[in-house]
Amino acid sequence: MRERNWAPASIDLSVQIYTWLLAAYPERFRAEYGPHMAQVFRDVCQRESRRGGLPGMAALWARTSLDLIRTSVEEHIDRGIDMNRENFVRWSGWALMAGAVLFAAGLILGSFDTNYSDPIGGLDAFYEISQIVGIVLGQILFVIGLLGLRAGYGTRSGSVGGALLLIAVIGGVVSLGGMLIMNSSELGWTAWALGLLTMTLALTGYGGVAIRRRVFSRWNFAPLLAGAVIPVLFGVSAAIDSSGGSMEDWTFAVGVSATAVGLILLGYRMQAEAATTSQALA
């Protein structure tokens, strides 16, 4: 076999990054199992590096990232051995519904903010704080909801559907990260907008898959409704801005409300179908 000089360095770097990422787990879990998880990850890195080279390592990182996001959420929720897939999907359905309400409320109340560039406080403090709390909490709940959607429906959605859900999760995480650094970096706005656009476009694509494959027992249009409106709003707003005009406030409120309705319908289906599955298996 050809000598791969990059291999030991890339393995060490991968393990170092993975060890940092273990911070996502609760402290007690990390203290108990963190070193063993890092050791196992090192073993798998060595194997994948030997077998698949750089593409193998990239595929390993893709799998491991998803595993890390999903299981760190599970460990924080810490539901015990009965936290099976159905329960996770059911709770993430509720998370999606709550996230939709918070996100829409945050955006709509935030649109009443009279001055976007002033520091938080003053007469419009209520609108400013509602916007920040609503959007941040809403996006955290979206990520949990999308993870549940992928856990519960990824297999029956096929490889394209599963990949689109993964892209939606990544978009949600990027958008949330952008929101969190918005105050300290200009990059935050770009990450927030691009992440949100990626998440909603991927959800729109997934909506097409859901309709074609009849993934849900009903309301297969819900992911399309949840995903399509925000990219359309982005596009229309950009077009109006470039022609020197500005979008009517009611257009924005109607668009965000339609997105929220789509997400609520999707979350409701997830929790209802997971509850039915749990009862059938019990």
Partner: peptide
Amino acid sequence: MGPGTLYG
């Protein structure tokens, strides 16, 4: 299985 799934 990823390390998270295994040790969880």
